[in-house]
């Protein structure tokens, strides 16, 4: 459990080091989870471009789709909606 700072310990005025949002894992907001279906994927990376949370990882050198970063994927479903080959499906979190 993260120790929460008191008002005397906090940096003044909510001015912090950069990149602090990495510490705030938003994956647990998710109710539906995207699942990748490799047989249908053509590695067009439209899902990677569309993801608002940088939660899709690709291997740029090999030109291959790689994985989801479930720490930050909020389950918005944009990737599944945009995929031209229906290679991403949104499933109930429990069915994953």
């Amino acid at each position: 459990m993260e120790k929460k700072l008191t008002w005397k310990e906090l940096p003044i005025g909510d001015i912090l080091e950069g990149g602090s949002s990495l510490k705030f894992k938003t994956g647990n907001w998710r109710s539906k989870i995207p699942v990748h279906i490799p047989e249908k994927c053509i590695n067009c990376f439209i899902c990677w471009i569309s993801c608002p949370d940088d939660a899709i990882i690709v291997d740029a050198e090999k030109g291959k789709w790689s994985s989801f970063n479930y720490d930050y994927c909020k389950g918005c479903g944009i990737c599944a909606y945009e995929c031209p080959k229906k290679a991403i499906e949104m499933r109930e979190e429990i069915e994953k």
């Binding site: 008002w7 080091e17 950069g18 990149g19």
Partner: peptide
């Protein structure tokens, strides 16, 4: 780099106002 005006939800906003 620094972050200015980061989101400050119910677990920290109160402390900043107290400050």
């Amino acid at each position: 780099p620094i972050t200015i005006g980061a989101l400050d939800l119910p677990d920290y906003y109160f402390e900043h106002k107290r400050q």
